[in-house]
Design a protein around this nucleic acid. Sequence first.
RNA 1: GUCCCCUUCGUCUAGUGGCCUAGGACUCCGGGUUUUCAUCCCGGCAACAGGGGUUCGAGUCCCCUAGGGGACGCCA
Length: 555
Amino acid sequence: MPGRVGPAGFAHHPPATGLQPALKSGPRRRWGVPQFQSSHAPRGTARAVARRHHGYTDSMSVRTRVAPSPTGDPHVGTAYVALFNHVFARSRGGQFILRIEDTDQQRSSSASETAITEALRWAGLDWDEGPDVGGEFGPYRQSERLALYRRHADELVASGGAFPCFCPRERLDELRRRQQANRETPRYDGHCRNLDPAESRDRVVSGETHVVRLDVPETGVCQFSDEIRGAIEIPWQQVDMQILVKSDGFPTYHLAAVVDDHLMGITHILRGEEWLSSMPKHRLIYDRFGWSLPSHYHLPLLRNADGSKVSKRRNPTGLNYYRRIGYLPEALRNYLALMGWSMPDEREIFSTEEMTAAFDSDRLTTGGPVFDLAKLDWLNGQYIRSMATDEFMRRVADWAINRENLAALAPLVQQRTERLVDLLPQVDYLLGDRATLDEDDFAPLRLDADDCLRVLDHIGRRLDAQDAWDRDALQAAIRSLADAMDIPTRDFLAPLFVAVAGRTVALPLFDSMAYLGRDMVRSRLASALTALGGVSKKKAKRLERDYADLQIDET
RNA sequence: GUCCCCUUCGUCUAGUGGCCUAGGACUCCGGGUUUUCAUCCCGGCAACAGGGGUUCGAGUCCCCUAGGGGACGCCA
């Protein structure tokens, strides 16, 4: 049964040829595969530990991973994928690994890596191996594994599975333009594949700038299986000769992930559905190295209310938003578990431990779930109400009402306080949610509603491009925007006050924003925009253009 | 545009050919308990995208159409 993993794990895969007969199509439940009984077996922790000591040689051990790219704020989608990998591994007594995919030198940052690991830890998704905890398959940061990728890329080139490509960007841009004009799928034309191997070796040796591309068959179809969908075929025609090594010597995702998954002994890959169309490339790389293909499960993508892939413009996607606004990690995990999976007994409130004990990948669903916060609110309430009072108090303190947190607020409020009761009304929008807005809240301002909307939209764009999130950096960023838009600071800031604090008189704006954090500010800007009538697709296009035309002084 | 994936109440889902007069949960609406509010309890609205087949029998299997999504980067 190709592609299907039994209890014995990946060692039982047939040799991967890529040319196996098509699997019987239809849903996986008709394949007649015996159900793996993990859901009814005891956790077997002792056995799992014993297995771990066998290391490489023990093919029984299930290993999964989550592999975020440290190029931004911790994303709820990362937690979603991490949850399922975590539960899958633990339900079979295996290991769950965190790997940092920092192969994009321009965009990766260690600040982002730290934020992501902290947020995942807050979410309660701990890992057995990772950059911060070590493990015998390390290092777990791809930027520290470059020699490994280099060696494998060389091997691929030597065996003819990949080739150096010297095409300048201009040629590729031109090629793409022409193909798009002819309504063809943009695809590398194989120019450098046809070079004389000796010549191209010389050019590489002489130090000429180049990338390494995957050689892809011209005809036929690639067959593979997705464990929650069944057999899938994609014509090789559709598959581009993907760059495997960039001109800076760093690998792309496709090479690095495959090499690492193999070397780290990953047996099951649960990842977002967006990777489905990359499967042929990955399968090709596995085959060319003669490696067995792990089982793949492509989880449905979380969606906005309109069905599109969840995005920060339309939804709070930052994990820190959920933390700051006071969702409990266990409630968030419970909610995420409901996105594409269900308990055998249809229970909807359950712990991650209960989920792990009952986990059965056959209960994974395929439709893209809308990330709708109403149900999370209800779930979170259920968790809060069922807590012991002591526990509740502890959680409140963990959340925000504590000494450390008040220390950040004290300098802002002390000079503005005569009686201690004056304190609460000042910090209401910092400790609590700010009032719900409507258009009237903006009416008294100097700018009209249209201008308010434009200002808030542009502030949102400006802040999305803003790395540092402290008072001075925020002030500089927003001042420069006000200058570029040629609006007096006082008038410019008023709608921002309303958006952030719900009123025009409040604690210092940039301190407030620094305190609230990026995710909370973004969500308040978004709801303010909605109060101002919202931004239609057409309007968004125009605003984007207007923003791009601004001459913002970055100094 | 090309390829791939997906499609059950507004939302999350149950459904593995007869147990489906399609079940549960959230939201919403109505009622009850409660000094208010919230909780809690009870009730209600609400779905198999459309069309063909296969079958004694189709939400479930097959095909087509439509709609949605994703991919098509020296991003991951």
